[in-house]
Design a protein around this nucleic acid. Structure first.
Length: 249
DNA sequence: GCGACAG
DNA sequence: ATCTTGTCGC
């Protein structure tokens, strides 16, 4: 994948091939403070169901004892939701898990997997948050700024944010609040199941982000994109560890 | 200082 | 994220 619309193709490429990356938490926070101004809120995502549209999902799996991370990028046809492309990347874990700094742990491998795709997606669905972040630069927004691609974040827990009751019907939602600021939406994708937490990443509006989340999560709580990416990165991690084991013994 | 804490 | 058995329900 070579995103022609990339805002900073050089930066994304440098990261993908192991270029500069923050080492300390202070450096990482400084990077976020720097990039937050580049997040675009205008909606550039095609409506759900648009024929010819490509929807991507990205996710990562870890084995900390082997210092290994596996990332996967999967592309679905926007109308049929059939998988049309996939790619993976394994690497050393580049950053520890620190709440608020997840992107520095996940993005290098994710960017490399995206670079390996032979298609450029119209929207990337991330596992985590976008604007719902202490510095308004969760991994979804961060990925969007580095690639120029429209992105959204769909998380499984509320992190540090609050919301009122969510209606029982699929599609019902409640604002995710950071104080009085709406940073996302708790969204019910299935009745009788906990809601998911949707937030804007880059170049997508919140209503559009929720519409895509609902479109991709008909049968299960989570979007088909992240379910596929999750399965693929786990398989990639398993194979990487098996190969390493064979080579070592 | 204490608790909370995306994945 | 990951460690883990059985169990309730469609």
């Amino acid at each position: 994948m070579t995103p022609g619309a990339a805002a900073t193709p050089g930066a994304a490429g440098a990261v993908a091939r192991g270029g500069p990356w923050p080492v300390t938490e202070a450096e990482a926070r400084a990077v976020q403070e720097e990039l937050r101004a580049r997040v675009e809120r205008a909606d550039h995502a095609p409506p759900p169901g648009t024929p010819g549209t490509l929807l991507a999902g990205v996710d990562v799996a870890y084995d900390d004892t082997h210092d290994t991370v596996a990332a996967a990028a999967v592309v679905l046809d926007g109308a049929t939701h059939e998988v049309v492309a996939r790619a993976t990347e394994c690497a050393r874990v580049p950053f520890p898990y620190v709440p608020g700094l997840l992107a520095f742990r996940e993005l290098p491998a994710v960017l490399a997997a995206l670079e390996r795709l032979d298609r450029v997606p119209d929207l990337v669905v991330c596992d985590g948050y976008g604007l719902a972040h202490p510095r308004r630069l969760g991994l979804a927004s961060h990925l969007g700024v580095l690639t120029g691609l429209p992105t959204i974040g769909v998380a499984k827990t509320p992190f540090r944010y609050r919301h009122g009751p969510v209606g029982a019907v699929r599609g019902d939602g409640a604002p995710l609040l950071d104080g009085t600021e709406e940073v996302g939406r708790a969204l019910r994708t299935r009745e009788g199941v906990r809601p998911v937490y949707v937030s804007v990443g880059h170049r997508v509006g919140l209503d559009s982000a929720c519409a895509h989340t609902l479109d991709l999560a008909r049968r299960y709580r989570l979007p088909e994109t992240t379910r596929r990416a999750d399965a693929l990165c786990r398989a990639a991690l398993r194979e990487a560890l098996e190969d390493a084991g064979r080579a070592g013994h």
